[in-house]
Protein backbone atom coordinates (compact mmCIF):
# COMPACT_ATOMS: atom_id res chain seq x y z
CA UNK A 1 0.00 0.00 0.00
CA UNK A 2 1.35 3.42 -0.91
CA UNK A 3 2.16 5.72 2.01
CA UNK A 4 -0.65 8.11 1.12
CA UNK A 5 -3.10 5.21 1.08
CA UNK A 6 -1.89 3.88 4.41
CA UNK A 7 -2.38 7.35 5.89
CA UNK A 8 -5.89 7.49 4.41
CA UNK A 9 -6.71 4.12 5.95
CA UNK A 10 -5.49 5.28 9.37
CA UNK A 11 -7.60 8.43 9.10
CA UNK A 12 -10.60 6.31 8.16
CA UNK A 13 -10.05 4.03 11.14
CA UNK A 14 -9.84 6.99 13.51
CA UNK A 15 -12.86 8.76 12.05
CA UNK A 16 -14.81 5.53 12.34
CA UNK A 17 -14.01 5.42 16.04
CA UNK A 18 -11.94 2.25 15.74
CA UNK A 19 -9.43 1.99 18.56
CA UNK A 20 -8.40 -1.68 18.52
CA UNK A 21 -6.62 -3.27 15.55
CA UNK A 22 -5.35 -6.78 15.07
CA UNK A 23 -3.85 -8.40 12.04
CA UNK A 24 -1.07 -10.13 10.22
CA UNK A 25 1.11 -7.94 8.01
CA UNK A 26 1.51 -8.62 4.32
CA UNK A 27 3.57 -6.99 1.59
CA UNK A 28 0.91 -4.49 0.60
CA UNK A 29 -0.27 -3.39 4.04
CA UNK A 30 2.98 -3.54 5.99
CA UNK A 31 3.10 0.25 6.25
CA UNK A 32 -0.46 0.39 7.57
CA UNK A 33 0.45 -2.05 10.34
CA UNK A 34 3.47 0.07 11.23
CA UNK A 35 1.44 3.28 11.35
CA UNK A 36 -1.22 1.69 13.55
CA UNK A 37 1.34 0.11 15.85
CA UNK A 38 3.11 3.44 16.34
CA UNK A 39 -0.10 5.40 16.96
CA UNK A 40 -1.24 5.63 20.60
CA UNK A 41 -4.83 6.00 19.38
CA UNK A 42 -4.87 2.25 18.79
CA UNK A 43 -4.35 -0.91 20.75
CA UNK A 44 -2.48 -3.05 18.21
CA UNK A 45 -2.40 -6.83 18.58
CA UNK A 46 -0.26 -8.62 15.99
CA UNK A 47 -1.14 -12.26 15.41
CA UNK A 48 0.40 -15.08 13.40
CA UNK A 49 -2.97 -16.42 12.25
CA UNK A 50 -5.86 -14.31 10.93
CA UNK A 51 -8.46 -16.54 12.59
CA UNK A 52 -6.96 -15.79 15.97
CA UNK A 53 -6.95 -12.12 15.04
CA UNK A 54 -10.65 -12.26 14.33
CA UNK A 55 -11.32 -13.91 17.70
CA UNK A 56 -9.21 -11.30 19.50
CA UNK A 57 -11.11 -8.48 17.78
CA UNK A 58 -14.45 -10.07 18.64
CA UNK A 59 -13.44 -10.39 22.29
CA UNK A 60 -12.36 -6.77 22.38
CA UNK A 61 -15.69 -5.68 20.91
CA UNK A 62 -17.52 -7.56 23.64
CA UNK A 63 -15.51 -5.41 26.05
CA UNK A 64 -16.63 -2.21 24.38
CA UNK A 65 -13.86 -1.53 21.85
CA UNK A 66 -14.33 -0.80 18.14
CA UNK A 67 -12.17 -3.14 16.14
CA UNK A 68 -10.53 -3.75 12.79
CA UNK A 69 -8.64 -6.71 11.35
CA UNK A 70 -5.98 -5.89 8.76
CA UNK A 71 -4.76 -8.75 6.57
CA UNK A 72 -4.07 -10.10 3.10
CA UNK A 73 -7.10 -11.57 1.35
CA UNK A 74 -5.55 -15.02 1.76
CA UNK A 75 -6.12 -14.49 5.48
CA UNK A 76 -9.85 -14.40 4.88
CA UNK A 77 -9.70 -18.11 4.15
CA UNK A 78 -7.95 -18.71 7.46
CA UNK A 79 -10.34 -16.46 9.37
CA UNK A 80 -13.48 -17.80 7.71
CA UNK A 81 -13.97 -20.50 10.34
CA UNK A 82 -14.22 -17.87 13.06
CA UNK A 83 -16.18 -15.39 10.95
CA UNK A 84 -18.76 -18.15 10.51
CA UNK A 85 -18.76 -19.22 14.16
CA UNK A 86 -18.59 -15.80 15.80
CA UNK A 87 -20.02 -13.59 13.07
CA UNK A 88 -22.85 -15.71 11.71
CA UNK A 89 -23.42 -17.61 14.95
CA UNK A 90 -23.21 -14.83 17.50
CA UNK A 91 -23.32 -11.55 15.63
CA UNK A 92 -20.18 -9.56 16.36
CA UNK A 93 -18.93 -6.69 14.18
CA UNK A 94 -15.33 -6.49 12.97
CA UNK A 95 -14.21 -4.16 10.19
CA UNK A 96 -11.80 -5.99 7.92
CA UNK A 97 -9.26 -4.32 5.63
CA UNK A 98 -7.92 -6.79 3.09
CA UNK A 99 -5.28 -6.52 0.41
CA UNK A 100 -6.94 -7.53 -2.85
CA UNK A 101 -4.13 -9.75 -4.11
CA UNK A 102 -4.98 -11.24 -7.48
CA UNK A 103 -6.85 -8.14 -8.63
CA UNK A 104 -6.25 -6.88 -12.17
CA UNK A 105 -2.65 -5.66 -12.19
CA UNK A 106 -1.31 -8.47 -10.01
CA UNK A 107 2.34 -9.34 -10.67
CA UNK A 108 2.65 -12.49 -8.55
CA UNK A 109 1.41 -15.92 -9.59
CA UNK A 110 0.66 -16.88 -6.00
CA UNK A 111 -1.73 -13.97 -5.65
CA UNK A 112 -4.06 -15.24 -8.37
CA UNK A 113 -5.94 -17.83 -6.26
CA UNK A 114 -6.37 -15.22 -3.53
CA UNK A 115 -8.17 -13.02 -6.03
CA UNK A 116 -10.31 -15.86 -7.36
CA UNK A 117 -11.59 -16.87 -3.95
CA UNK A 118 -12.02 -13.67 -1.98
CA UNK A 119 -15.26 -12.16 -3.31
CA UNK A 120 -17.22 -15.45 -3.49
CA UNK A 121 -16.02 -16.22 0.03
CA UNK A 122 -17.12 -12.83 1.35
CA UNK A 123 -20.52 -13.44 -0.27
CA UNK A 124 -20.73 -16.92 1.26
CA UNK A 125 -20.01 -15.45 4.68
CA UNK A 126 -22.60 -12.69 4.05
CA UNK A 127 -19.94 -10.05 4.58
CA UNK A 128 -20.73 -6.80 2.70
CA UNK A 129 -17.67 -5.17 1.15
CA UNK A 130 -16.35 -2.32 -0.89
CA UNK A 131 -13.55 -2.66 -3.46
CA UNK A 132 -11.34 0.44 -3.30
CA UNK A 133 -8.92 1.17 -6.12
CA UNK A 134 -8.55 4.95 -5.64
CA UNK A 135 -6.78 6.43 -2.65
CA UNK A 136 -9.38 9.14 -2.11
CA UNK A 137 -12.06 6.47 -1.72
CA UNK A 138 -10.23 4.58 1.02
CA UNK A 139 -10.95 6.81 4.03
CA UNK A 140 -14.75 6.96 3.50
CA UNK A 141 -14.84 3.26 2.58
CA UNK A 142 -13.34 2.28 5.94
CA UNK A 143 -15.90 4.44 7.73
CA UNK A 144 -18.78 3.01 5.70
CA UNK A 145 -17.68 -0.57 6.24
CA UNK A 146 -17.46 0.08 9.96
CA UNK A 147 -20.91 1.67 10.01
CA UNK A 148 -22.66 -1.29 8.40
CA UNK A 149 -20.63 -3.70 10.51
CA UNK A 150 -21.97 -2.05 13.68
CA UNK A 151 -25.49 -1.77 12.27
CA UNK A 152 -25.74 -5.44 11.28
CA UNK A 153 -23.51 -6.80 14.07
CA UNK A 154 -21.53 -8.81 11.56
CA UNK A 155 -18.21 -8.14 9.82
CA UNK A 156 -17.85 -5.89 6.80
CA UNK A 157 -14.81 -5.52 4.58
CA UNK A 158 -12.78 -3.20 2.39
CA UNK A 159 -10.71 -4.76 -0.39
CA UNK A 160 -7.73 -2.55 -1.26
CA UNK A 161 -6.05 -2.55 -4.66
CA UNK A 162 -5.39 -0.42 -7.77
CA UNK A 163 -3.98 3.06 -7.22
CA UNK A 164 -3.74 2.37 -3.48
CA UNK A 165 -0.93 -0.10 -4.11
CA UNK A 166 0.53 0.62 -7.55
CA UNK A 167 1.97 3.68 -9.29
CA UNK A 168 1.76 2.71 -12.97
Amino acid sequence: MLEQAAQAAVTGLKEAGIDFVSGLPDGWQRDLHELVEADPAFTYVPVCNEGVGFSVCAGAWLGGRKTALVMENSGLRVASEYIARIGLGTGVPVTMILSYRGDVGETEHWGIPHGIVVEPLLDALRVPYLVVREIERLRPAVKRAHRISEAQLHPAAVLVSGDCVWED
Partner: peptide, 21 residues
Protein backbone atom coordinates in the same frame (compact mmCIF):
# COMPACT_ATOMS: atom_id res chain seq x y z
CA UNK B 1 -20.21 -15.37 31.92
CA UNK B 2 -20.13 -15.19 28.13
CA UNK B 3 -20.84 -18.66 26.77
CA UNK B 4 -19.64 -17.52 23.38
CA UNK B 5 -16.51 -19.47 22.61
CA UNK B 6 -16.50 -22.50 20.39
CA UNK B 7 -13.80 -24.76 19.06
CA UNK B 8 -10.55 -22.88 18.63
CA UNK B 9 -11.56 -19.36 19.58
CA UNK B 10 -12.16 -19.16 23.35
CA UNK B 11 -8.65 -18.05 24.34
CA UNK B 12 -8.57 -15.57 21.45
CA UNK B 13 -11.86 -14.05 22.59
CA UNK B 14 -10.61 -13.92 26.18
CA UNK B 15 -7.36 -12.20 25.18
CA UNK B 16 -9.34 -9.54 23.31
CA UNK B 17 -11.71 -9.05 26.24
CA UNK B 18 -8.84 -8.84 28.74
CA UNK B 19 -6.98 -6.28 26.61
CA UNK B 20 -10.16 -4.26 26.13
CA UNK B 21 -10.80 -4.10 29.87
Amino acid sequence: SAHLGQMGDVIGLAVGLALAL
